[in-house]
Design a binder for these strands. Structure first.
Lengths: 123, 123
DNA sequence: CGGCATCCTCCTGGATACTG
DNA sequence: CAGTATCCAGGAGGATGCCG
């Protein structure tokens, strides 16, 4: 943790890495990632209930993307009424761990940022 | 780094933390953060040249936001032609360090994600 | 040089309604 | 229950032009 980014050499790889971060750093993705990390396995509606303010559309879309990216698994149980379970893959777990540092940063420095904003806005 | 998020108790704080992350996890912010971390101090146009694809509007907007959030300093030199220098604050440096984990994750697992996508799309 | 203001376009994402 | 499909408003963000 010296704060020095990897200093990517290949610009093509750098671009891909940036795109990937842009994708996973999405608000809903991060919230669902955190939720599944904590709760383990949840069904569709459960996630919808526990992620404050998410629409059904974004929930479906985000889960699909996470599944596609190999971050989560989607298990369909052939019962009536239908039941679909979601859980993190090891890859998803590792991303959750990586985000942990940012989460802690935000928590620790929230006050400092709000202070800075107040000072800036006072001008 | 056990992958367990702080499990925020106060829902109001949790919301603020989420908003803050949403703000700083912005694409341009992350790129400028990384650039300033590496290069130290840069002027407006320098940053514009080195951040691939950013428009002047987004550059101004992002730098202003970073300044407001206490992540970067803006120094105006009263010379002709005008010269404005940007550099990270300690707070900005700490955020850069926090993002380091995500950056490393993306770099290390880029191939795995692309593999997962290929497998998903093959269906 | 380092902006700010304006216009205009595209895409995100919410609301709603319908299916297996 | 777990989606898919459609419509639509709002904001992100690019292009252009003007100022100190």
């Amino acid at each position: 943790m010296d704060g020095t980014p990897p200093a990517e050499s290949d610009p093509r790889v750098e671009r891909l890495v940036n795109e990937l971060i842009g994708r996973v750093a999405d608000k809903w993705t991060m919230l669902i990632l955190e939720l599944l990390e904590e709760k383990g396995t949840l069904r569709f509606t459960e996630i919808g209930r526990q992620v404050e303010g998410i629409s059904q559309k974004m929930l479906t879309q985000t889960l699909r993307q996470m599944e596609r990216d190999g971050l989560a698994t989607r298990t369909v149980h052939p019962v009536v009424p239908p039941r679909v379970d979601y859980a993190l893959t090891p890859l998803g777990n590792s991303l959750s761990a990586a985000f942990c540092g940012v989460w802690i940063w935000a928590e620790r420095h929230l006050a400092a940022v709000e202070e800075a904003r107040a000072r800036f806005d006072a001008l």
